[in-house]
Each structure stands twice: as structure tokens, then as C-alpha cells.
């Protein structure tokens, strides 16, 4: 195997994932500050979007499955959720790549926002 090939396989370019699907980005953002289990992600997204974005469990887990496959998040050992009950939950955490991808998407959105301000679409930041 040539080194070039192996490096490409091992660390994909975060930019290659962009733009992210809306739900995907929300899940990554939700996992950015701490590890959460699935329901916690749903609740967090709901809270941060002022009840605007309600992920359905089935699409959430389809996304989680895809993110796991892409290596953007990883599974942690199951552990109880202290805030809810003592049922053991599976927690997820951002991988290094996942964090890089989320950052890249955030920067992309930031640039876009900047453009919107520059053209007067949004008020300029004071």
C-alpha cells in the first residue's frame, strides 16, 4: 500500500463532508460540549432550537448509524443516565474527525453569514 493512499484512507479531509445535513450538524453540535445518549441529543436539539427542530427517533438513529460508519462519532460504554432513571444508556462522543468536520461546517456557515452581512442582507455586526 502506498503511503499516500493510506493517509487518505486514515484521515479523510473534513471539507469533503460538507455541507452537512441540517440534522447531522445539530447532532454534532449537541455532542460538542459533552457526551450524550440518543434521547439527550433529541432533547438538547429541541431546547437549543426553541422547540423548532424535533428530531424523530427513527431518523435520529439512522443519522447516528451513518455518523458511526463515517467515523464522526463513536460509541462509549453503556452507563446509566443520572438525570432520568437508572436504565443503562449508550452514550456517543465526537471523534477528532467529527469535531474537525463540525468546526469546518461552522466556519462555512460563518463565512456565509459574513457574506450575507457584507451584502446588506443582515445588519452588520457592530
Amino acid at each position: 500500500m502506498t503511503p499516500a493512499r493510506s493517509s487518505r484512507v486514515d484521515t479523510p479531509d473534513p471539507e469533503s463532508f460538507l455541507p452537512l445535513h441540517r440534522d447531522t450538524f445539530h447532532i454534532l453540535v449537541s455532542l460538542a460540549d459533552r457526551d450524550r445518549h440518543g434521547y439527550a441529543v433529541m432533547q438538547d436539539v429541541l431546547e437549543r432550537t426553541d422547540n423548532q427542530l424535533r428530531l424523530s427517533p427513527s431518523s435520529l438513529y439512522a443519522s447516528i448509524r451513518r455518523l458511526l460508519e463515517q467515523g464522526l462519532i463513536e460509541e462509549l460504554a453503556e452507563r446509566p443516565d443520572p438525570s432520568n432513571d437508572d436504565e443503562r444508556r449508550r452514550y456517543y462522543r465526537l471523534t477528532v474527525l467529527g469535531r474537525a468536520v463540525a468546526k469546518a461546517e461552522a466556519r462555512r456557515l460563518e463565512r456565509l453569514l459574513g457574506d450575507a452581512r457584507a451584502t446588506g442582507l443582515l445588519p452588520r455586526r457592530t
Partner: peptide, 17 residues
């Protein structure tokens, strides 16, 4: 395969909600 992997979690979320 999906059920084995995520079925239990899905059911837990359902119960939570």
C-alpha cells in the same frame, strides 16, 4: 443488523418520550 445495534436504544427513547 440495525435492530441489534440500535433497537434497544430506540425503544428506550420511545419509553422516555
Amino acid at each position: 443488523a440495525f435492530r441489534d445495534e440500535h433497537g434497544r436504544e430506540l425503544a428506550l427513547v420511545f419509553v422516555d418520550r
